[in-house]
Design a binder for these strands. Structure first.
Lengths: 331, 331
DNA sequence: CTGAAAGCGCTTACAG
DNA sequence: CTGAAAGCGCTTACAG
């Protein structure tokens, strides 16, 4: 028995052909029960671990899915990414995780790598260049875009309308009687879409032009101090701050408290994402909830459908999972 | 040109042998410049994307590293994981990310999968069963354990001494004059090691037996309310709370403020990990810093050494990166 | 239910 | 510097 036993070693040990061992591994029921037992023993004895590279090459089936996201932490879709990886793993799929860090070039590299590894599917939360989109189409890899509803999706888009979120926030703020909103927008086109829609709707509702600030993503706690310091320097103090993430909202609340302001009485704060801390913070944070589980479910469904040959080339389609404004104490 | 062009398609297009195309791809300098140009054009024209499965099978070299961690969020080594993935990606390595969720069985599955894919290395922050350890040894995969200093490492261990942290914390608490520490320990053996060492050292220093509480990991904000409620019900209010993470420390501070207590005057709080929020919170959080970058650096060094054939089978060794107690405002 | 054999798409000594 | 050919470790029609 060699260092790394192969299928042939097992076959020799069990005194059957390697084809039969392969069948036992992939489709046990087509192998006679007695034979199966012998093979099982041989596998145990040799300590055989299948070579997935060879298996995937021969079968042109992979059990790999690539998941791409800008960052791992401080990020709005962290929960969704984690749930996605867990759900994928539960079905025996391995996950190649790529961090694109807002760089389209990096995203392209990672997508090419995923195709090179013959990934079953590529799931991304970021954008993609036209050149890479073409590669994806040609490779016939299942392609899933999360957290967005692009006009013309490359494969399947599972997300929600960012402009709709912006408009809803504007209406909520108006309904609560706030007059001086301050917008904090993270960079990235999605945040920009929410912002633009907010401004438009706010104007329609007769509001004065809000003040604004921009922060880099990932936007957790780090930005809180600087952002709050800038707010205090504003000619007119806002009565509500609309943040690009719950983390930032939390940081603003902490800063407000440190400055002896009360939330929401002196300053209201709105987050985005409804991460677990939003419901646990003091005060609890008013925010926008996205149904991450549904996003995961839809993505998994699409992938398994293709793997089970139910569908060959998935039609391009858009799934809107919507969102929900969760009103809590902070605004 | 077929749907998925192969090396042969490129070779035909360029009118050279597939061996030459392969050489151009992997070691361009051994190919004549003019030939290289022709091949480059052929690759572009055909839209060729190499099949890494075939490449890795033939060369028995992989460009895949498996990274295993219990959870993606709310976790102490999140920063290290992200830095690790980024560093790996920068050297052209793809990352298979596995979430073990504190389940040894899951860890075993993922490690087996990594070996099946002929991963260059397996990097884990969790523990591993003896059975799997044996598989790893036989597979000769580079194995790196982070965040810990096991007595007999399977491969390379890069971490720090958890008992030493516990002792240092006890001495710090004593030196600051606190008398009633309350320990909040997350489950997991490492946290237990810190706890045990704290208790032992505290006793040596003549302190009374501290009160204690336990929480599940991942331990972010969610546990704050419950933990704080239990603290208030304690027969004697502690003067310092030693938390298993900065997140939990933050949550305790928020709860203390909500209860009109001042930190650290009425209640001091100590975190663990020195994540970015520790330095940004109000008050800033006293915590224990781990040099995640050094951990990443050591791991990458070990991996590249093996890939460059500098070392064949890496010797088992332990690298202690130490830690640093960062005294800030909260204690 | 099982085996012999071709093939998956590459790499790599071996020659030249 | 380049080509012909064997081989990496599997899978899968095709027979039987």
């Amino acid at each position: 028995m060699s260092e790394r036993p192969t299928l042939d070693d097992v076959a020799a040990e069990a005194d059957v052909s390697s084809a039969t061992v392969s069948r036992y591994l992939n489709n046990p029921r087509v192998v006679a029960k007695a034979t199966g037992e012998i093979i099982r023993a041989a596998i145990e004895k040799t300590g055989y671990i299948p070579n997935l590279l060879a298996s995937e090459l021969a079968s042109s089936k992979s059990r790999l899915v690539a998941v791409l996201t800008p960052h791992l932490q401080d990020t709005i879709f962290n929960d969704t990414i984690e749930a996605m990886i867990e759900a994928l793993s539960a079905t025996g799929i391995n996950v190649m995780l790529g961090l694109t860090g807002n760089s389209p070039a990096r995203a392209d590299e990672l997508i090419t790598a995923a195709i090179s590894r013959r990934a079953d599917a590529i799931i991304t939360t970021g954008s993609i260049t036209e050149h890479t989109a073409e590669l994806v189409r040609r490779s016939k890899t299942v392609f899933i875009q999360m957290w967005d509803l692009p006009e013309k999706p490359i494969g399947i888009a599972v997300g929600f309308s960012h402009p709709a979120v912006g408009r809803e926030l504007a209406r909520f703020v108006a309904k609560r009687g706030y007059q001086c909103p301050h917008l904090i927008t993270a960079n990235g086109q999605r945040a920009a879409m929410r912002r633009d829609a907010f401004l438009e709707e706010w104007k329609l509702l007769g509001g004065e032009t809000p003040t604004e600030d921009a922060v880099d993503i990932p936007s957790r706690f780090g930005h809180g101090r600087g952002v709050f310091a800038r707010i205090r320097r504003l000619p007119r103090m806002p009565d509500v701050v609309i943040c690009g993430s719950d983390y930032l909202a939390q940081a603003i609340i902490v800063e407000a408290h440190a400055a002896n302001m009360r939330v929401p009485d002196d300053l209201a704060v709105i987050g985005f994402g409804n991460s677990s801390l939003a419901g646990e913070m003091r005060p609890t944070i008013t925010t926008v909830e996205i149904d991450g589980r549904r996003i995961v479910r839809e993505a998994i469904t699409a992938i398994t459908a293709v793997r089970n040959q139910t569908v060959r080339t998935p039609a391009e389609r858009i799934i809107d999972v919507g969102f929900r404004l969760v009103a809590r104490e902070s605004a």
